[in-house]
């Protein structure tokens, strides 16, 4: 993994990889979408079950992205790898996007199922807080002008956040048992029929692939921008 940590090496390796990654994403999305539309309506949830195919993968990727961001931050902080800093920085807006999509689609699923767009349930509340963690991280990156300094500060924040996330989740869970009102219909449930599992998994693969495709494009963008900036300032060894 560290063999590719040099930005120059990363540019060389990622260039031929990018079309394949993008292609795989497109194939997974095409197959996933077809299966999502072709799946029969659930006997209980009716057609709203189709929201699951876009909601659950978004939620998965939103969480995975924060784990990725924290890991990249750790590597950036300890090994001082500029590439890890770039990866963490570019993962954040994507993570925020997937979190927002998970929240919105969840809300649109909740209306017909629970009778409300918003329920202060443990998972929804944790996700809203995750969204704010992402926003805070992005805001800190943008607020500090010095790039290395911003990277370190943001990395510390990401690590504080990832340590706090389980505690936040626990506290929110504890809080919902405190305020438990009417029992809400558990969506999904432990048993999902196989007709729904396949579209779900393929869509999840598509979302994950899309995350990494976009991450790669954005990382390449950032490296190109940095190179252009160094060159414009007269530094001969950009990159």
């Amino acid at each position: 993994m560290f063999a590719y940590a040099n930005p120059k090496r990363f540019m060389e390796v990622s260039a031929p990889l990018l079309p394949w990654l993008a292609g795989a994403t497109a194939v997974a999305f095409a197959a996933g979408l077809y299966l999502s539309v072709a799946a029969p309506p659930d006997y209980q949830q009716g057609d709203t079950v189709r929201i699951m195919f876009i909601h659950v993968p978004a939620a998965w990727v939103a969480m995975m992205a924060y784990g990725f961001l924290a890991l990249a931050s750790l590597i950036g902080l300890i090994n001082r790898h500029p590439l890890a800093d770039v990866a963490a920085k570019q993962a954040a807006p994507l993570g925020a996007l997937f979190t927002a999509l998970a929240l919105i689609t969840g809300s649109l699923w909740g209306r017909p199922m629970w009778g409300t767009y918003w329920e202060w349930d443990g998972r929804l509340t944790s996700f809203l807080l995750l969204f704010f963690l992402y926003l805070g991280y992005i805001a800190l990156w943008n607020a500090i002008e010095n790039e290395t300094r911003a990277a370190r500060a943001a990395a510390i924040l990401a690590l504080v956040g990832v340590v706090n996330l389980p505690i936040i989740q626990f506290s929110v869970q504890w809080w919902t048992t405190l305020h438990q009102g009417e029992s809400i219909l558990r969506r999904g449930g432990p048993l999902i029929a196989a007709v729904y599992l396949w579209p779900l998994f393929i869509m999840a693969a598509g979302y994950t692939l899309l995350f990494f495709t976009l991450l790669m494009v954005r990382m390449r963008t950032e490296i190109l921008q940095r190179r252009a900036r160094t060159l414009a300032m007269g530094g001969p060894n950009a990159g």
Binding site: L129, F132, L133, L135, G136, A139, L140, L157, V160, G161, N164, I167, I168, F170, S171, V172
Partner: peptide, 10 residues
């Protein structure tokens, strides 16, 4: 506030 408030929820 944006940075601190999510961390302070517990």
């Amino acid at each position: 506030p944006l940075i601190v408030l999510p961390l302070l929820t517990p």
